[in-house]
Amino acid sequence: MVLLSVSNLKKYFPLQKSFIERVISRRKQYVKAVDGISFIIREGEVFSLVGESGCGKTTTGRLIVRLETPDSGKIVFDGKDITFAKEKELRPLRRKMQIIFQDPYASLNPRMTIGDAIAEPLIIHGIADKREAREKALEMLVNVGLTPPELFYKAYPHQLSGGQRQRVVIARAMILKPKFIVADEPVSMIDVSLRASILKLLMKFKKDFNLTMLFITHDLAVARLISDVVAVMYLGKIVEIAPVDELVENPLHPYTKALLSSVPTIVPQMKREKIILKGDVPNPINPPSGCRLHPRCPLAIERCSKEEPKLKYVGNNHYVACHLL
């Protein structure tokens, strides 16, 4: 069953211009952060959005939990169109969908104890009174491995390590037993040796609650570990969607191939042909015409600069947006 469907989603951010620039040119410029993307996430699935910085993956996540309002397109969550829902209508829905941010320290109120922070969602949604909320928060602390819970309940965020803080953030997101969660780079600011424990914690909750997850990451290795399906983004567009094993073993888009051949690995013999892209990622204000990769793509043909490729089904639940296929 489909839990979330996103179609033709767009978000352009107006560019901040200086006074003089505004006088000289009337034309408003936009950063095309998300430019017409569509995908579905099935219940119980971990769907990863992978891409380099500036590709629009974080904006997509924020649009889906509606911390940002789309310019156009459609977001249907759990049978309800939430594309332009007002904050008031969203509040009850927030019980079912949560977001975990990259920076755990910044996502916790420095003047609220860990326990209060975890109990907060229960109180916000009127699910439990203070005493019950406390009990449940203590339980949750044990669940995320912060023991003894009484000690952590009274602690403040600055007294915890990065890994512990991210556990708190996860506990806070999970205490409502949401159906769906957006995890935006949840381990990229965590020390290497502690990443595994955070990822395992997320996977445990996924199994226990039959959680559906949108996992946003730049790290293909993490995506391989945690996801069922991966979508690769480049300059505001999705270029390829496939089940994770299929994507890694049979990448079809030149950009995906380039990414995969650049990821560091301890089994280098598994690396495939090297695709070298020319130059750097272009400016998202005036992205290239046609296929956005064409100025960098070693395989580009004339058509690529003129016509934008659509996502095509190529079998095995695999979709690619490339004219060469």
């Binding site: 502690l194 570990l225 089994v267």
Partner: peptide, 23 residues
């Protein structure tokens, strides 16, 4: 050993094992 077992790798489907505790 713990470090190698704790990091996922894109070309290997494997279980990851965490190093318990904190630095």
């Amino acid at each position: 050993e713990g470090l190698i077992e704790s990091i996922p790798d894109v070309f290997m489907r494997k279980e990851i094992k965490e190093i318990p505790g904190q630095p």
